[in-house]
Amino acid sequence: MIKGVRVDYVAILQEQVQSMWTGFIAILPNLAIALIVLFLTWLVARFAVRIANKLTSKSRMREDLRQLVETIVRLGIWILGIMLALIIAIPGFTPTGLIAGLGIGALAIGFAFQDIFENFLAGVLIMLREKMRIGDLIEVEGVLGKVEKITLRETYVRQLSNELTIMPNSMLFKNAVQILTDDTVRRNEVIVGVSYDADLEEAQRVIEEAMKTVDAIVEDRPIIVYAQEFGGSSIDFLVQWYAQSAQRDLRQTKSEAIKAIKKGLDAAGIGIPFPIQTNYFAEPLRIEHSEAKDKAAD
């Protein structure tokens, strides 16, 4: 404090509070108009999304691309509405001033939201590419399920056991994704073992005839039956066929194929042996009998 000069801090504080209150009262009309602009933005966004949905539903656009169009329309309208509301509510506000004011803070924000931006870009690229549509059965990083929804940040995968897994888009974009339903049909296989004393030519013919009785197998694709290897107790045949690529169809067709093969081999008298294990000992085994057990046997 300068000698002889007395500062009235209470009066200065009151003056600043009064000035802030007066400024707040002055911008109340602007705030009201800004709120109205946000409300109109909400209405326009809903209306625009409905129009976009009607237009895209009439086309042959994929479901994930339709969602991308709706998201971009909604996001664009909200960005314009929020910018207009800020211009009305804050006198002197401009988009260029906002960008310039961020300065180094923009770099910090970029690092902080790196994962969000990465997933956002990955989501756009996933939606734009032709493969992996909604409804496809996929397997990625040990997760096997059906794609239910793709957003700009994450993908919803419903596993076959009915659990829902939400995966970041960057995981699906960076890692190998197996699309099991990319084609309408998919190959399946089973190993069939026959006894060593069986006629292999006859066994192969019986298996082929049995597979032809399975209705779910795609008829225009070949049925492959090959003797593969000498097993521990059987000669193993590899049986391959094509069926509809849906997971339920694959399981059902495999079940019908196994039943048909078993029925055909039984009718032909060809045995499907149990696993047999042979033990070899370096020295002959001695079998000892106790006198008590011998007397009890007598």
Rank of each mutant, 00 (worst) to 15 (best):
R186V: 03
E219W: 05
R186E: 04
D182W: 06
I138P: 03
A198K: 00
F120S: 00
I138A: 02
V147G: 08
P284Y: 09
K254R: 13
V69H: 10
A45K: 12
L180C: 06
V157N: 01
S19W: 12
G101Q: 03
I258R: 12
D298C: 07
E148V: 15
M211H: 06
P168C: 05
L40K: 06
L13M: 14
S245G: 04
Q204M: 10
N175L: 05
F24M: 06
I79W: 08
I27M: 04
E256P: 03
I27C: 01
M171E: 06
D8N: 13
A260K: 01
D115H: 11
L38D: 02
K131G: 13
P275V: 04
V73A: 15
I224R: 00
E118P: 00
A296E: 11
D183K: 08
D199T: 02
P273D: 14
N175E: 10
T96L: 13
G145A: 08
S233H: 10
I223T: 04
L180N: 01
A26N: 08
M171V: 15
I150G: 12
F281L: 13
P275G: 10
T253M: 00
E139A: 09
I109G: 09
A106Q: 02
P168Q: 11
A257Q: 11
I99C: 04
V37Y: 02
S233A: 15
K212D: 14
M1K: 06
A243E: 10
F120M: 09
A122G: 02
T151V: 12
R60H: 14
V218C: 07
L35T: 10
N279Y: 14
K3R: 14
L238V: 07
L152Y: 07
S255D: 11
P29C: 13
H289L: 06
F237P: 10
I235E: 08
F237D: 03
L200C: 03
K254W: 01
A257R: 11
L121Y: 01
D249G: 02
F111A: 11
R187D: 00
N169W: 08
G145E: 08
A11E: 13
T253D: 04
I207T: 03
Y242S: 14
Y196R: 11
L98H: 02
M132N: 11
M167H: 03
F117V: 14
I270A: 14
K58M: 08
A108V: 14
R205T: 05
I191H: 03
Q16L: 15
R133C: 07
A89V: 02
G92H: 08
M83N: 04
K54P: 05
A89I: 01
L84I: 06
I270M: 06
K131W: 10
V124G: 02
T181N: 01
V192Y: 09
L40D: 01
I72N: 12
